[in-house]
Simulated scan of single mutants.
Amino acid sequence: MFPRTIGPQRGESGQAAVESALTLPLTLFLILGTLQLFMMLQGRVMAEYAAFEAARAGSRHHGDCKHMAHAALAGLLPSIVPYLGNGTPGSTPEEKLAMAWRQRVGSTENPDPRYLPGVDGTHDGPVFWLVREQPLSADVPHPEDFRFDAPFQEGGGMRLEVRLIYWFPLKIPFADWVMSHMFLASLGLRDFNGANPLMLARRQAGWKAGKSPRSLDDGIREELVSRLAARQYVFPIQATHGMRMMTPARARHFQNQNCGSAPQSL
């Protein structure tokens, strides 16, 4: 009489392999998705800081978009690229920071900083949009109103209200693709019925566009869909900041309400 073999039989090991193959994508997504969410939280903090820097620069320079955009880019750089590594030219941290800033700002007169393709991943286009909520271009006096900060004015003086839309790059492979399509469905922008990467046994994901009220402006929605179609996995993080003007707003800086490539309809 032969002794019984202790351990998994051939059928049991095959079942374990199938179960592992079915659950591995979900396990992998939980790990990578968690890392990506933490990076988005960091991006949110950096966007808040960049909005503050943009408002501060604008209040000191008559609402000039150039100074606002340059200040915002300096605040966002740490979440865009690890510029202290060997990939950025320079021998000191200060030189590396200056070079990383200069590469994305294009020129000292460029009010629309852009991603650097190949270094910032596959992303292209503006790093952020700057929207000046207040003052409105139609309300900016010409010539300058030197009583802009008079305490007897309504509201206590002129204020600069800034909204920054940071096109945060999703950099974690696999998680960026899955989360981008989930975002589109949850924001009510597009259904996704392709193969479900989280459940290999399902041929269609069945991610339906949400029915919740619109939470994004039309210009932001269109840009998000366009970038995803180009396989640029980004997410719009919005931050606002307001500050009392330290210098009077100049009409020549408010020929357009918003800065750079930001749609004027926002």
Results as ranks from 00 to 15, higher is better:
Phe2Trp: 14
Thr5Ser: 14
Pro8His: 13
Pro8Ile: 10
Glu12Asp: 08
Gly14Glu: 12
Leu24Thr: 15
Pro25Trp: 09
Leu32Ala: 09
Leu41Thr: 00
Ala54Leu: 06
Ser59Cys: 14
His61Glu: 11
His62Lys: 11
His62Val: 04
Gly63Ala: 03
Gly63Pro: 04
Asp64Arg: 10
Gly75Lys: 05
Tyr83Ala: 10
Gly87Asn: 12
Gly87Leu: 10
Glu95Tyr: 09
Leu97Val: 14
Leu97His: 14
Arg104Gly: 00
Glu109Cys: 05
Glu109Asn: 15
Pro111Lys: 06
Pro111Trp: 05
Tyr115Asp: 07
Asp120Gly: 00
His123Pro: 01
Pro126Asp: 04
Trp129Ser: 02
Pro135Tyr: 04
His142Val: 09
His142Asp: 12
Arg147Lys: 12
Phe148Arg: 04
Ala150Ser: 11
Pro169Asn: 11
Pro173Asn: 05
Phe174Leu: 14
Phe174Asn: 06
Ser180Gln: 03
His181Tyr: 14
His181Phe: 11
Leu184Asn: 01
Leu184Ala: 03
Arg190Phe: 03
Phe192Lys: 03
Ala195Asp: 12
Asn196His: 01
Pro197Val: 01
Ala201Glu: 12
Gln204Glu: 15
Ala205Phe: 06
Trp207Asn: 08
Lys211Asp: 12
Pro213Asn: 05
Leu216Tyr: 01
Leu216Pro: 01
Ile220Phe: 02
Glu223Arg: 02
Ser226Leu: 08
Gln238Pro: 03
Ala239Phe: 04
Ala239Cys: 06
Met246Lys: 13
Thr247Ile: 08
Gln255Glu: 09
Asn256Lys: 13
Asn258Thr: 06
Ser261Leu: 13
Ser265Thr: 08
Leu266Gln: 02
